[in-house]
């Protein structure tokens, strides 16, 4: 059974992004929700997923919102982030090892998938991060 621990809806704007990430991290800390990710990795996955939703989903349109929820189910904490965008079809990202073709962008999803299991809804405007619980703080 999935139990919702935290939920929030915020406007997609540059100023609202860092406080939202801080509130989520504080919730993890205050409620002693320990995960297999360390503090840096947890902030990183929250940051990448929220930035993706605000930037690519809502195009930083302050009239659009993102919905964030944190829940727990069995051995995992689930973070769902939904934007008001049209969704997208995820394709494997083209990381290149060739310094001559280095792109500046397009690494966010690769980072997310490297640190946790990731799932999208059919439309592609809602991402769920599955973060494994751990008994003690890392």
């Amino acid at each position: 059974m999935r139990i919702i621990l935290y939920e929030e809806c915020v406007a997609s704007s540059h100023p609202s992004r860092p406080p939202l990430i801080r509130r989520l991290l504080k919730f993890f800390r205050d409620h002693q929700l320990y995960t297999e990710l360390d503090r840096y990795e947890l902030e990183l996955v929250l940051d990448e997923a929220i930035t993706n939703a605000m930037e690519h989903g809502n195009r930083w349109d302050e009239r659009k919102s993102i919905y964030v929820s944190l829940s727990e189910e069995n051995d995992f904490y689930l973070i769902e982030i939904r934007d008001d965008g049209l969704g997208f079809t995820h394709r494997p990202d083209p990381l290149t090892k060739d310094p001559k073709k280095l792109e500046t962008r397009g690494r966010g999803i690769h980072i997310l998938q490297s640190f946790c299991r990731v799932q999208w809804n059919a439309l592609g405007n809602e991402i769920t991060l599955f973060i494994k619980k751990e008994q003690t703080c890392r």
Partner: peptide, 20 residues
């Protein structure tokens, strides 16, 4: 520096590309 994300990586790459 204690925190760097994908936007930070993009910035480092931009510096690299600028000088290269």
């Amino acid at each position: 520096v204690v925190y760097l994300n994908s936007l930070g990586i993009a910035e480092i790459i931009s510096v690299f590309r600028y000088f290269k």
